[in-house]
Design a protein around this nucleic acid. Structure first.
Lengths: 347, 347
DNA sequence: ATCTCTTCGTGGAACGTTACACGAGGGCCG
DNA sequence: CGGCCCTCGTGTAACGTTCCACGAAGAGAT
C-alpha cells in the first residue's frame, strides 16, 4: 500500500514494468476501458497496490480529464452554503471525483472571475457556481468551455443547468404565518440590486416580488415596505433601525436572509424591544444560526443538502455526456417556526 | 483580451507563432526567467494579450509547479476557520497562486486522507492543514513530499511548519476574569481525546492543562472540573446538563469552543437559568456567532486572520525555498468581554 | 584583428497519461 | 480448411509546459 521505498512516486510505467505488461494495458484497467481480461486486470491491480500507485492528475489533465470539480462560493460564512456543500460531497463520495472549493475572501466580481479562471486553467471537469456575482454573459462563456451548474439564480440558459428554490412559496409561508398570528404591518429587508450583472432573477428579486404579491393577496398592499439594506449582519441592523425608528414601526420584520435577521436582533436590543413580544422576526435559509437557543429564529428551510446533491448529480450527467440539454431543478421550501414570531402586541 | 475567435484555447505555441519567436522564449517571459530582452518581453506580452492566453496549469504541473495551494478544513461550519481563510487569501492575493479548499463533509480521518491525497495527486505546490485529524505520521509522510503547514496542533516537527496560538495565555485570561468577578466554582467543557492519532498537543490538551494550572494558581485546584463532551452544540448541551444538574452546580462554565457554548445556552434555557444572572459563560475562538446580539458571548480572540496570513507566508517561503528549517509561530490571544459573564449570584 | 565574456534566443527532450491504430491469436461458419 | 469476426494486448503519437545545453552576435580587452 505504501510507495515501497523509492523516493519518487510510482508512475504508470513502473506499474507496467512490475506487472510485466504495457502501459496501455495499465491505462485501460485504470479507466476500466473495453478489452482487458480478468487475469490482466488482476495482475495490474496487484502491481498497483504493491507500489502504492495513484494516478498523476496533472498528466491526466493534459489528456482531458482531471476528475476534479470546482465549487465557487461567494462567502464561506453563510451557513446555508455549508449545507449545500454537504449535499455536493455526499453525491460525489462514491465517485472518483474530488471536490475543491474556491472562495475569495470577498465576493467581489473581479475576485470571482479570477477564481473561475483558476478553475478552468486547472482543467477542472465541471463547475458549480453558487450565487455567482460575475456577469451572466461571463458565465455563459465559461459554460461553453466546461460543464457548469448555477445554484440560486433563476435565469436559465441553454448553456448551463440551474438549481433553485421556489422562493415564492417560501415567502408565502412566512407571510401567511405572520398574518395568521395577527400581524398586518410586516416589513421586508432585502438586498440591494447590483447593476450590470445581467442576472435578472436573483433570489432577492423573487423574494421581493413574492412578498409584495403575498401582501396584496391579504389586502395589505399599501402596508408593504421594503428596505434594501443588504444581506449581512450590518445590513440587517441598519435596515431595522430605519424601520423601527420610523413614524410607523412595523410589528413584524421578514428578513430575506438569516444573517440579516441577526442584525435585527442587535437593533431591537439597542432600542429596548423584546423579540417576539414587541417585534416578530422571521428569516430565510434556516441556517444553523437560526437554530441556536439564544437566537431561536423562525425561518424558511430550503433543504440545502438536497440542492447540493442535485447540483452535483446534474453536473456529473453533463460531464459524462449522459445529457446534453440544459435543465432547471426547483425544490420546495418549508417553514420552521421557532420562538422569534408571536402575535403582535395588543394595540 | 478575449480568445480572438478560435474555439480552442490558445497555447504557448500559438503565442510563439503570433510573436514570431520560439516557445522557449515565451516560457521565459512567462516565468520571468533570466535572459530575455525588454523588446522580446514586450512583443510576447502583446501577443499573449491579443490571444487571451492563460497558461495551462495541468501542463505546468507535469513539469513541477502548478501554482496551486490547498487548504484542508475539518469543518466549513466553524466560523473561526473562515477568519483563518481570510488571512490566507489576503497573503496570496498578490501572488500567482490560487487557493483551493478541501472539505470533506465529515472530519472523518479517512475522508481527510482521501482529500490530502487528492491534493497531492493534483501536484499542489503546498498544503495548509487546519487542525487535521489524520495521524501525525501520515502528515510527516506527506510533508516530505510537499511543503506543509499545520495550524492548531502544538506538535512541531522538522518536516512541517506550525502556526498556533498561545492557548495557555487565553485560558489564564478567562479564569482571571471570572475570578475577578467573584467566581470560584468554574467548570470546563472540553473535547474528548481521540486515541491513536499521535497528536499529543492538540489545542484541547493545552487548554485543559492551562485550566487546571490557572485554577491551582488561584488556590481552587480542588474545585476544578472538566467534562469531555466535545466541541459541538450538542456536546455543549450534554456537558452543561451534566454539570448543572449535579449536586454542586458551578457558577460559571468555560467552554473550550464557542460552538459548545451555544449548547450551554440551550441547556440553561431548558433549566430556567438566566445567563449571566444565574450562570456565567465564556467561550473560545471569538467566532462571529459570539458577537451576535442575542448571543453576546465573552470569548477569547485568536486573531484568526493573522494566523492564516502567517501560515500562507510560511508556506510560500518553503515553496520558494527561501527557508529550509521548520518553524513554529505562536500568536497571543486576548479576551473579549461581552454580556455572558457577570458576578455570581449572591449565595 | 583576435580572443574571451556576456547576453539573449532557439532546439529539443522530457514529464505521465490517454486513445487510436494495429496485429496476433482463437473460435465459428460455410 | 479458408476466411472472417472477436477479443485482448501493444506501440506510439500526442497533450502544453519547462529547462538544459547550445550557439550567435555584440562588447570589451589586448
Amino acid at each position: 500500500m505504501r510507495p515501497a521505498s523509492s523516493s519518487k512516486r510510482a508512475t504508470i510505467t513502473d506499474v507496467a514494468h512490475s506487472a510485466g505488461v504495457s502501459t496501455s494495458a495499465v491505462s485501460k484497467v485504470l479507466r476500466n476501458a473495453y478489452g482487458v481480461s480478468p487475469a490482466m486486470r488482476e495482475r495490474v491491480q496487484t502491481a498497483m497496490d504493491e507500489l502504492g500507485y495513484r494516478p498523476h492528475a496533472a498528466a491526466r489533465g493534459m489528456r482531458g480529464r482531471t476528475y476534479t470539480i470546482g465549487v465557487l462560493l461567494a462567502s464561506i460564512r453563510n451557513a446555508f452554503y455549508a449545507d449545500l456543500l454537504d449535499g455536493v460531497n455526499a453525491a460525489l463520495r462514491d465517485t472518483e471525483y474530488a471536490l475543491f472549493l474556491g472562495s475569495g475572501g470577498s465576493s467581489e466580481r473581479e475576485d470571482q472571475t479570477r477564481l473561475i479562471h483558476a478553475m478552468v486553467d486547472r482543467q477542472m471537469d465541471g463547475l458549480i457556481l453558487i450565487a455567482p456575482t460575475v456577469s451572466r454573459s461571463e458565465v455563459v462563456h465559461i459554460a461553453a468551455e466546461v460543464p457548469t451548474v448555477v445554484v440560486g439564480h433563476h435565469d436559465p440558459s441553454p448553456a448551463y443547468d440551474c438549481v433553485v428554490n421556489q422562493d415564492g412559496v417560501g415567502v408565502d409561508l412566512v407571510v401567511d404565518h405572520l398574518v395568521a398570528l395577527g400581524h398586518r404591518d410586516m416589513a421586508h429587508l432585502s438586498h440591494p440590486t447590483v447593476r450590470g450583472t445581467q442576472w435578472e432573477q436573483r433570489p432577492e428579486h423573487h423574494v421581493r416580488a413574492a412578498y409584495r404579491a403575498a401582501m396584496a393577496r391579504h389586502g395589505l398592499a399599501d402596508l408593504a415596505r421594503v428596505v434594501h439594506s443588504g444581506y449581512s449582519d450590518e445590513g440587517g441592523y441598519r435596515g431595522a433601525m430605519e424601520l423601527l425608528t420610523s413614524t410607523r414601526p412595523p410589528t413584524a420584520i421578514f428578513a430575506g436572509a438569516d444573517v440579516a435577521a441577526t442584525g435585527v436582533f442587535r437593533a431591537a436590543a439597542e432600542l429596548g424591544l423584546r423579540i417576539p413580544d414587541d417585534l416578530s422576526l422571521a428569516g430565510y435559509n434556516n441556517t444553523s444560526v437560526a437554530a441556536l437557543a439564544p437566537v431561536n429564529l423562525t425561518s424558511v428551510d430550503q433543504a440545502g443538502a438536497m440542492m447540493g446533491e442535485t447540483a452535483a448529480r446534474l453536473l456529473l450527467e453533463r460531464i459524462e455526456k449522459r445529457r446534453d440539454r440544459a435543465v432547471v431543478m426547483a425544490s420546495t421550501p418549508h417553514l420552521v417556526v421557532r420562538g422569534s414570531t408571536a402575535p403582535p402586541p395588543a394595540a
